[in-house]
Amino acid sequence: MSWIRNNDLNLLQKLCVNVLKCGPVPRHVAFIMDGNRRYARKTNVQKAEGHSKGFDKLAECLHWCRELGIKEVTVYAFSIENFKRSNDEVEALMQLAREKFQKLFEEKDKLMQEGVCIRVIGNLCLLPDDIRKLIAEAMLLTKDNTRSILNVAFSYTSREEITQSIRSIVEAVQDKSIEVGDVSEELIANCLYTHLSPDPDILIRTSGEVRISDFLLWQISNTELCFTNVLWPEFNIWHLLGFVFKYQRSRCLQDVYKANKPQPNRNHRTQSFVKSFERKRIQQLELYARA
């Protein structure tokens, strides 16, 4: 199953999409795609099959988001904690990632034509060499696409991300690129894996769990959290439309809150640090891609 899907919506779905598009639509939606294994148990198939179904659902969901005008999507695909699962399951998940990233290159033209940018957020060092290489290549290939952005959290936890950000900033102060006084919330955000993305407007977690499980903790300070009992492979467009509708209803509250936030101020020194940090990231990816 491929990354880009263009299955048509039926008339009623199209109508609803068009109606919702008259109001504010979230710019960025995050998903915790939970319930693949429970789905496998429920339908009596192998775990790996459940995960594969989960990926198909992701492709479908991306299509719905594009139709709705949601520009950016972030998904929690694999947590660092997931390495603790059985060897078989971790290996099956890695194999799935391997296949899907290879598939991505086969669909290169379609991807570029649709303007899809793929970013993997997480600690790539923990991954097998070949997957890391594939990921780096995919990111470099699509990095200038802007029409639709997909962030895949892979080998990710939020605490690890915040720790890495703190570490980079501490190092930068130590080698005198910035001064202690420059450290701010904004600077920490700028050194997170997600530094290129606006904060998500809604976070959807499927399969009935009601916690965030170390996902985007820093970024969801003003995000609407949506928990639903449906298992991820059974998630459908009506669930998504429902959440967008709810989001539209709570918009006025969010605006009030945002107005209270202080405006960030950045000096020249911090700006050039952030720029060079960004450059280093690209260089690192190029290194991985050549490996």
Binding site: N222, T223, L225, K246, S250, Q254
Partner: peptide
């Protein structure tokens, strides 16, 4: 009315 953590 909504699940917002409001900068917790």
């Amino acid at each position: 009315g909504r699940l917002h953590i409001l900068n917790y």
